[in-house]
Design a protein around this nucleic acid. Structure first.
Lengths: 338, 338
DNA sequence: CTGAAAGCGCTTACAG
DNA sequence: CTGAAAGCGCTTACAG
């Protein structure tokens, strides 16, 4: 920058002023500076500016596992929203491990991010490190929470599960089970509870929730085998995630159980593969979630906020069955449902 | 830091020395410094250190679209490899747009990343900005290239497509078509050429490659309709990506064309959904790709390197058909194939 | 409108 | 082993 100043015959202050555009500068000098920048191939140093400004114009996003298909869409939307304010994103992956998560929080903070968007790995075990971070910098919890007094953007699980249960009931289900309770993730815990409440409201006999270690396809397969071994499948199986449902479907198919003929199956999150797999799912609008989280970060509040987005059911073949109301009219009405 | 020094009764230099661990410091002072850090709740500033050290200990990863399922696995592996060297990653999404990509390169460079891992949006249009970046900082191209004289980590497409074609031939295919040529992505262009070469070698009649605007499910559906409208499907359809194949499968199914009975279909990349969909695909080992790219970045060379990873075919139901050799033994041998 | 000066928080020769 | 000093590249009151 000094070199540019010398080349342009002005002071460094002036160079800075034309570059930041903060103040008026006479056109002649402005032009001289611009010419000098070109000529010398000058590239401003954002780190130095950040140090001086005490703001890095960046936020950290920390997710448990970037390979979990719900995160890319959220991250992308958040990134876009933040880009509007010229803020960029430092992304970290916690490897589904609270120790790694704590380390990542540390490096993010050391890098002086202006804020944090984090989806905690574990409801309880993530709390201490997250609390320490939240004390230092604006923080928004994404999709799951570990702290109740820190901003949170999530899904209205009651709404989602009620839609699922109503849909299943309309398809004639009288008994159902929820696969995927897990107290390490607030979202799954809430979903399980919401499912039970909705079943009670709609007169569906809910079997005890099946707890999983993790909502992935492998556990879907495992629990499908368990359910089959136990014998007497319920009319419907509601899964806590799409991947869980995929694993379950594969295993059911292998066992000769047909879906939707023999059992109705639903997933959750409506990831792209749910469409190919013809799996009925609950769409969370991941982009909205990311955008909303970014907004909370930009517009701080003194009291913690909880934003719940309403999801919408997406009906597909995995629950295709004429509803009793339409039975008389024939099965052709199916496609227009949901 | 000054405060810590005062509290500990030493100089700032000493504080720095105990924090970086660069030099010996007498235990008493070391302890005093550590105590003072605790007491004051001191947090080091990585930005200032980076400014002084002229190294931010971070690299930028720029992908065309983080929602493309091949990237999360690559990013994650690269992040892990870099974390070994205490380097962290700043992730940007180019929105599949070369203008956005150029802007992102700019912010990354301004943030003084020590290196760049980029998958170029477009083979030709991404070149100028990428060249400018590569001149300033070590750069590795990921999966696709825009520059031939800059490090590149990609797939050995000849090997992959040869495996596909041999597999199809063993399943009795005599005619085939490749869906997904696109000159904007070096990977797809190479794949199309490799397919044609392999067909020629193996005596399969290859129809003219179908060019797509983009290798996603929508275009898979569109081209399935085109192929159907044209009439007379070939024995096999090799797709440039899994998503293309998914879209194609959905549309074929809707038209009453059975896979694998009526036509064999393959995808590419072996994303998780390929497993659920029982789609035969080509596994690229995404983690290896990310790891390898990170390594090239850490170990610079004066001459540009090109690393090609050998992919492996993963045979699934979408190409399940007894090979002529096994026909006599019956279809039970199927599962052990590929 | 503009320049000189101070300072953001660190690190590292340099001299003891 | 340790301190004083300089400097990384910026920005912004302050005084003109």
């Amino acid at each position: 920058m000094k070199d540019v100043a010398r080349e342009a015959g002005v002071s460094a202050s002036t160079v800075s002023r034309v570059l930041t555009g903060a103040t008026r500068v006479v056109p002649a000098k402005r032009a001289a500076v611009e010419r000098a920048c070109k000529k010398l191939g000058y590239h401003p140093d954002g780190l130095a500016a950040a140090l001086r400004n005490r703001s890095s114009q960046s936020v950290g996003i920390l997710v448990p596992d970037i390979e979990n298909p719900i995160f890319p869409a959220v991250i992308r939307a958040a990134e876009h929203e933040l880009a509007l304010a010229a803020v960029d994103v430092v992304l970290c992956d916690a490897d589904n491990d609270v120790a790694v998560e704590a380390r990542r929080l540390d490096t993010l903070l050391r890098r002086r991010v202006d804020g944090l968007l984090v989806c905690p790995v574990h409801r309880e075990h993530s709390a201490p490190a997250l609390r320490a971070a939240a004390l230092r910098v604006p923080t928004v919890q994404l999709d799951r929470y570990a702290l109740t007094d820190v901003d949170f953007v999530g899904t209205d699980q009651d709404s989602g599960m009620r839609q699922v249960v109503e849909h299943l009931r309309d398809r004639g289900a009288r008994t159902a089970v929820f696969v995927g309770g897990y107290r390490g993730m607030s979202s799954l815990t809430e979903r399980a509870q919401a499912f039970e409440r909705a079943c009670a409201e709609h007169g569906i006999a809910a079997r005890p929730t099946v707890d999983v270690r993790f909502p992935d396809a492998d556990n879907g397969r495992r629990h499908a085998r368990d359910l089959l071994a136990r014998g007497g499948l319920p009319d419907a199986i509601a899964c806590a995630s799409d991947e869980l449902a995929f694993g379950l479907l594969v295993e059911l198919r292998a066992a000769g159980v047909r879906c939707p003929e023999d059992v109705l199956v639903t997933g959750h999150d409506d990831i792209p593969a749910a469409g190919y797999m013809e799996l009925t799912s609950v769409n969370q609008s991941l982009p909205d979630k990311g955008r909303e989280a970014a907004r909370l970060l930009r517009h701080q509040s003194s009291s913690p906020r909880q934003v719940r987005l309403t999801p919408t059911l997406v009906a597909r073949t995995s629950t295709a069955r004429p509803s009793p109301a339409y039975a008389a009219a024939g099965p052709a009405a199916e496609g227009s449902h949901g």
